[in-house]
């Protein structure tokens, strides 16, 4: 059975997964100027991140703040689906690329290559 190695975390009550290959490291404090909380980036919700995932985009490294623990896991490819086209076209978050359904649990899949902090975001989490 094939699988995708992911880092899973919670964002505003939703389970979210990023491919592990996009995450360079995980810190307990922000260490880069460019950082934003996942709740704010994905759902415009305030939060108090406790972990910071370091990713990289065209402008260099940046950090995504998450609340609570992250979890390394293997998502079986049989449980992974692309976002249906009608929803993909209307999503406000271009990085939302699919969903995984394991039993009754839905996981939102983010494309790490399309995830970036807003250009004006240098520190948008609520300390």
């Amino acid at each position: 059975m094939s699988y995708v190695a992911c880092v899973c975390f919670q964002a505003s009550g939703h389970r979210v997964a990023l491919e592990a290959r996009y995450i360079q490291r995980i810190d307990s404090t922000p260490t880069h100027h460019r950082h934003i909380a996942a709740d704010a980036l994905l759902l415009n919700q305030p939060s108090h991140p406790t972990r910071w995932l370091t990713l990289r985009d065209a402008e260099g490294p940046w950090q995504l703040g998450i609340t609570g623990d992250s979890e390394m896991m293997r998502l079986p490819t049989a449980a992974i689906y692309p976002l249906p086209p009608l929803l993909a076209a209307r999503s406000r978050q271009p990085a939302l690329c699919g969903i995984a359904l394991e039993g009754e649990q839905l996981t939102l899949l983010l494309n790490g290559a399309r995830l970036s902090p807003p250009s004006e975001a240098s520190s948008t989490h609520h300390p």
Binding site: H14, L42, P84, L87, S91, R92, L101, L108
Partner: peptide, 18 residues
């Protein structure tokens, strides 16, 4: 599915397809 316009929109699981 979050991040979509505010109406009842989401996905259903139908015999192995979304």
């Amino acid at each position: 599915v979050p991040g979509l316009p505010a109406s009842r929109e989401g996905v259903i699981h139908l015999r192995g397809n979304i």
